[in-house]
Design a binder for these strands. Structure first.
Lengths: 237, 237
DNA sequence: GCCGCGCCTTGATTTACATCAAGCTCCCCA
DNA sequence: TGGGGAGCTTGATGTAAATCAAGGCGCGGC
């Protein structure tokens, strides 16, 4: 049932590779391996070296820290069309996180060799890689800001607003990309706390929740609901 | 008094540029501006676009978030020879942090144009940029792990161990790169908490502190002092 | 030498969130 | 149609670290 996929075509459709020449794509494809991963399977452990990076074709991969005490902190959820591991590949150091499939997934593993060749032959591609890594960095900085400066409720609201990407205002339906347990970890809070926060947002009439499906009644109002107990901003005169 | 510096020579000595050809260096130098900044001055605010990036020649720059409520969170301290702003430049999006001089400083501002030219002409340079950004990403991931999984005490210890870079063991003298207030923010804790933690480490005989100068009595012992109240790791049979 | 001002320390109190401990609910599967 | 279990909820309790509030100490200026 369609197990065999056309690696070249899949690669050529990824944003990162879309503008590469045929020859470069072929070169990449030659160094690309297909990987099937059933739900729950671990792709690599923290500490591994990578001689290439991964692209998710379908399914979902979780990147997470795991402390010796068994605690776990989800850093990133990777979905179809997204890649991961580039930084570890370029850095040539042990990977700081582990990767695990949250669903049955299919990945491509693209060897460093072809990437380096493409960089050599196409500097626009190099720039796209640089821009991609920069965006990744930006996302991480956002996370650090969130963890450092925002309350749990603010983080949850921020996450919901991001899901309801179509900004503007009005009501939006969105779906949690994973179980609440995983989302909680991603947001650096306990499952219990996430539950309580969602329910407080429900009580405030800002959202409704059915399983993973969340309806944001009014995006603008949700983004205004800053968790403030008192709105005494009478500064400036 | 030596205000005039030889931009080309300074550039050529930076790790990032060391292996570039003369012609590329000259090209970069042509698009480079020198910037003097006295202590406390703000280089750019959160939200700025950058059409180049910065290298610190001497002095020290603080990169930080500043929330509307006036809270501040230090993300990074950058010292001589280090650069910042590359990611923002490649990303072409507003900068997520502000930059402020903690000491009288001298910087170089290197225009994107020359960098892009160098990428086009020297793919090894492109790879060095990629490796550099990857390392930056790695550092940030480490921070996220620290904030999410480690206690305040563990973060402080981790920071001290990093300062006392020469790993191994024995006693090491190191110096805090900024005031305790700034270090506390960098480590995501209040100045009071940092003070208390340092004093508890002193009481445990692990370090001594004189102003910014800290003596780590025994690196190995410090890294073992995990903050654990009980060491009941009787697992494995 | 003395004053004044940051910077740091120290203690008392508060608080946001985690943890612990039951239950509940939905859904899969028999 | 009913049983079982994962995932979620809900309440009670605990706690790490923030905040609030005074002092002390060191250092540079006069």
């Amino acid at each position: 049932m369609g197990k065999q996929i056309d690696i070249g075509r899949v690669l050529a459709n990824l944003p990162l590779f879309q503008q590469l020449r045929e020859s470069e794509i072929a070169n990449l494809a030659a160094g690309t391996r297909e990987i099937g991963l059933s739900k729950g399977r671990i792709l690599f452990q923290k500490g591994c070296l990578l001689d290439g990076f991964y692209v998710t074709v379908y399914g979902q991969i979780k990147l997470a820290f795991s402390s010796p005490q068994g605690n776990e902190k989800v850093v990133s959820l990777v979905g179809p069309g997204q890649s991961f591991g580039e930084a570890v590949m370029f850095m040539e150091r042990p990977c700081p996180v582990m990767a695990q499939a949250l669903e049955d997934s299919r990945l491509l593993y693209i060897a460093k060799r072809g990437i380096f060749a493409a960089i050599d032959h196409d500097s626009a591609f190099a720039r796209r890689l640089l821009a991609g890594l920069s965006m990744r960095l930006h996302g991480l900085i956002q996370d650090v800001e969130d963890y450092s400066l925002h309350s749990s409720t603010q983080r949850v609201i921020g996450f919901l607003l991001q899901l309801a990407s179509t900004p503007a205002s009005g009501s939006v339906i969105c779906e949690l990309p994973a179980s609440k347990h995983v989302i909680a970890s991603r947001l650096n809070l306990s499952p219990e706390t996430l539950s309580r926060i969602l329910h407080s947002l429900i009580e405030s009439g800002l959202i409704t929740v059915h399983g993973r499906r969340i309806v944001v009644q009014d995006v603008a109002r949700l983004s205004r609901f800053d968790d403030l107990p008192h709105s005494s901003c009478a500064k400036g005169g």
